[in-house]
Amino acid sequence: MAPTFKVRKSEDRGYANLGWLRTHHTFSFGDYEDPAFDGFGTLRVLNEDVVEPGKGFGTHRHREYEIFSYVVSGALEHKDSKGNHEIIRRGDVQFTTAGSGLAHSEFNASTTEPVHFLQVWNLPSNTQLPPGYETGHYPDSSKKNRFATLVAPAKKRDRVDPGHPDVGKPVAIHSEFWMSAALLDPGVEVVYKTTHVGEGKKGQSHPRRLYVHVVQNNPKVKVTVTSNEAADEAPEITLSEGDGVFVEGFDGQGPGLVVRNDGQGVAEVVLMDLS
């Protein structure tokens, strides 16, 4: 069975401009509610945030969710109730397991430049996990014209072959969730094939869900997404900056997902692979 595709256009996302914060919401969040987009599998939040210099999110509490930030540009300062204090920059993924309860704050560490990042919330497989914190660093070289794995299940991350000298082991998450990122030059095509297909009832293969997001940092980008089936069977999806596409029924034994940069300049693409 071929995978299905559903496009999420950037302009259709939730949006708020609070002066100090400009944010787009792929899913319902805060005052933005859309019953058609309340989540996707265990993925509950995907916000694309730009925070003005010296501003940010004051101390607030979270429970249960695992929350992480993918920095696109600028410097993001993190503090939490467990004593963690760090400034993360481009290439960094800052990951927090809220678990049984954690308070944290996130501020733009610069007084002159905005910080642009993706904020992701995912539901872990178990509740009441001990609060935790981890940071991974993945330079641009590790993502150039390839998908680098940034986040992987805690019990499986040590099995991930980095495939590149600049890639460290993925950040550990407590669910069947994987996140990768790629920086594609114009004309470059990469194929993503998951090896994470789970087992459903009676040992049957349980297909995966994928979400492909084009980072909003290049207005001339044009990303084409399709599966590598026969051309007359597979639709071609065209994405601009800020757009995304939901892919369901993705079987690791079947066709791969083809992602190609048909635009000008580098396309920064984030891919989430979940059950």
Rank of each mutant, 00 (worst) to 15 (best):
E52N: 13
E52I: 05
E52T: 15
E52C: 07
P53A: 14
K55F: 11
G56M: 10
F57S: 06
F57C: 11
F57V: 08
F57L: 13
G58F: 06
G58K: 14
G58C: 03
G58R: 14
T59D: 10
T59M: 13
H60S: 08
H60E: 08
H60F: 08
H60A: 10
R61C: 01
R61E: 03
H62R: 06
H62G: 07
R63F: 05
R63N: 00
R63W: 02
E64R: 12
Y65V: 06
Y65H: 04
Y65A: 11
I67T: 07
Y70E: 05
V71Q: 08
V71S: 08
V71E: 09
V72R: 10
S73I: 04
A75E: 13
L76Q: 03
L76S: 01
L76M: 09
L76E: 02
E77I: 00
E77H: 15
H78G: 10
H78T: 09
K79D: 15
K79M: 14
D80A: 07
D80Y: 07
D80W: 06
K82Y: 00
K82I: 01
K82D: 00
K82S: 04
G83C: 04
H85Y: 05
H85E: 13
H85G: 00
E86I: 14
E86H: 12
I87Y: 00
I87L: 01
I88E: 04
R89A: 08
R89Q: 15
R90Q: 12
R90M: 07
G91K: 11
D92P: 08
V93E: 06
V93C: 11
Q94I: 02
Q94C: 02
Q94R: 05
F95A: 05
T96M: 13
T96F: 04
T97M: 04
T97K: 03
A98E: 03
G99C: 05
G99Q: 02
S100T: 13
S100N: 06
G101I: 03
L102E: 01
A103S: 15
H104M: 08
E106L: 06
E106G: 09
E106T: 10
E106D: 09
F107Y: 15
F107A: 03
F107Q: 06
N108T: 12
N108M: 14
N108L: 11
N108V: 15
A109M: 14
A109H: 11
S110F: 09
S110M: 11
S110K: 10
S110A: 09
T111D: 15
T112E: 06
T112C: 00
T112M: 00
P114C: 00
H116L: 08
F117G: 04
F117I: 05
L118W: 09
L118C: 10
Q119D: 13
Q119I: 14
V120H: 05
W121N: 07
N122G: 11
L123Q: 05
L123M: 12
S125H: 09
N126K: 15
N126I: 12
T127S: 12
T127C: 00
T127P: 01
T127G: 13
L129F: 03
L129V: 14
L129M: 14
L129G: 10
P130Y: 07
P131C: 00
G132R: 02
G132C: 05
G132L: 01
G132I: 01
G132P: 04
